[in-house]
Every structure is written in C-alpha cells, then in structure tokens.
Simulated assay, not measured.
Amino acid sequence: MRACSRGFTLMEIVVVILLLGVLGIYTTQFIGSGTRMYADVAAREQLMNDVRFGVERLNREVRDAIPGTLQVTSAPACIRFWPIKAASRYLQLPGSAAGSTMVAFIPALAEQQVAPGDLALVFPQGLDPATAPYACSHGNCVLQVASVTSAAPLQSIQLQAQSGLTGTQFATPSPGQRVYYADRRVSFCQQGSQLIRQEQLLASSATESNIMAEALQSASFSMESGAFNSNGEVLVRLLFSRRDEAVQFSHLLEVDNVP
C-alpha cells in the first residue's frame, strides 16, 4: 500500500498570507501608537526638566526681592529687582541734621555681611530702581554704607549720601523697623528663545549673564497698579515649546515683608 502525502493548496497559502498580513498591520499600528505615546511623554518630561531649574530660580529670587524694587517691562519682557543681600531691624536711625549713624542688629545669617559700598534701604516705597541716584516718592530712602563696626549683637553703621544727593537721614522710618541692604540688581528677560538672568553690581557697570532656560516661546510679567499690595505682587506667564510639545507656567508671585 503506497502512502499518500498531501501538502497545502495554493488557496490555503494565500489565505494564511492574508491573515498574517492583517495581523501584522494591526500589530504594527499598536506598537507604533505605543511608541509615539512614549516618545511624546518623554519629550514633555525632558522639556519640563529643562525649564524647571530656570522657573524655580525665578520664583525663589523674586520672592526674596527687596520690597519696592520690583520693575517689569514688556518690550523686552523683563522683570528686574534688587535681591536682599542682608536684612535686619534697626534700633536707631540718624536723628539729627549732622547725624549719620544707624544702630542695627547684626543680620541673622553669617553669610549676610554688610560691607562699605552697600546700599541701606528703609521703607523703600515708590522707589525707582532703574535710575540712580535712588530715591523714593516720599523722600530719601536709600543711603550708602560708609563703614561698619560690629559688637554683637549690634552693628554701628556709618551712612553717607549717594553720589548726586545730599543728606544722611532717611525720610520715613519703617513701621517694622526693618532695614535692607543691597549691592546688585538682577533681571530675568526673554532674549529670543532663551530666559536670561543678568546680574549687575549697583556700584559699577559690571554684569554677568547666564542662560536659565531655553525653548521659550513667550514671556509676560505684569503688575496691577490698582490691586491691593500691587508693589509686592507680579504675575508671571511663561510658555515653552519644543517638538510640538508645549508647557505653560503661570504664577502669581508675592514678595515677602512688603509694608
């Protein structure tokens, strides 16, 4: 008896090929969709990581700015302020026409050292931080430190007028007896697609610039003049975009210790 071997017919082979083709198409689409989703999430996370440092740096520094020194512009989009070098409370302000000595507590932090050439600010309301010499709407609120003598827990600080101004007295005392010290001006600005931080010493024109974030599409800094505490609040809107992925940051920042 002869054995009979039977193979696949042409129709069966065609059907199998069609089924494998259909299965392959759906499998490819499923894998491709998952890959695209992963790539989109990875791109968004990478964008967030790239801009998080700059945004957090901006938030932290603005909150610690000296009250009354905030200034915003729209062309270019910038926010400028004086960071607090040191802060303390005073016991005595210059009280006579010839007096120039302020007695204050030594700043709490060891790294906050007051030095000759620093600017001392008392009740800095209505200050124009862009134009030197600096003065407030109510009169003199900024004096320059000439010398510092420390005898814990107090400091005796000799003050002198800024170049271009006269007088060594503050026009208005602080309600909380606060005194701030500054030696530099900081700005965060949009330059093209970058968020740039620039630092300028108040006593000179020396500047230093650093890139805080890239892929910046638009920036907006605004202050509402009619709002309560308007000189201590700034609305920040930043839009970052890369490879069709966009992230928008919107914050209302409040400066601490505003009178």
Rank of each mutant, 00 (worst) to 15 (best):
D183E: 10
G95Y: 08
L202Y: 05
H138L: 14
Y38V: 11
S220A: 10
C4A: 10
L10K: 07
P153K: 08
A151P: 01
R63I: 06
Q160N: 07
E254P: 00
C4Q: 14
Y26Q: 14
S250Q: 15
G34W: 02
A75T: 12
P173E: 04
G232Q: 06
A75H: 12
A206E: 10
R80F: 09
F53R: 08
A98T: 15
V145W: 02
P116A: 09
A182C: 07
Y90H: 08
A206W: 09
V236N: 03
V186I: 15
E245P: 01
Q169K: 12
A87P: 00
A182P: 00
T172S: 13
L121T: 04
T69R: 00
H138G: 06
E233H: 15
K85H: 09
A110V: 10
R44Y: 07
A110S: 13
G232F: 02
V148N: 06
V114N: 00
L121A: 06
V179T: 05
I31C: 05
A215W: 14
L18W: 06
V103E: 11
S74E: 13
G24M: 11
S163I: 09
R242C: 05
Q191I: 08
S88M: 01
S204E: 02
L143H: 02
V72Y: 04
V62I: 15
V145S: 06
A171R: 03
L20H: 02
A108M: 11
Q194A: 15
Q194V: 07
P173F: 06
S220R: 14
R36E: 08
D244M: 09
T27C: 13
Q169D: 08
V179R: 00
C189W: 00
S156D: 07
L238H: 05
A203P: 00
L195S: 02
S187P: 00
A171W: 04
I17K: 01
R57Q: 12
A135I: 10
P83C: 03
L159S: 03
S205G: 11
Y38Q: 14
C78R: 11
A86R: 00
D128M: 05
E245W: 00
F249S: 07
G139Y: 08
V234P: 01
L20V: 11
Q29Y: 10
L10W: 04
E12M: 04
A43L: 11
A215C: 08
Y26D: 10
A219T: 01
L202M: 07
V103C: 05
S96P: 03
G21D: 09
A108L: 13
L238T: 01
A146V: 07
A215L: 06
S156K: 13
D244H: 11
R89F: 09
D244V: 02
A152P: 06
L238G: 02
V247L: 15
D256A: 14
G226C: 02
L70R: 00
S220D: 10
R197Y: 01
R60D: 08
T207D: 01
R52E: 15
V51A: 06
Q144G: 06
E56Q: 14
V15Q: 04
P153D: 09
T69Y: 02
A75G: 07
N140M: 10
P124I: 03
A75V: 11
T35I: 12
G7D: 03
H138E: 14
D244R: 12
I17F: 09
P259K: 05
A104S: 11
H138F: 09
A115C: 06
A87Q: 12
N229M: 10
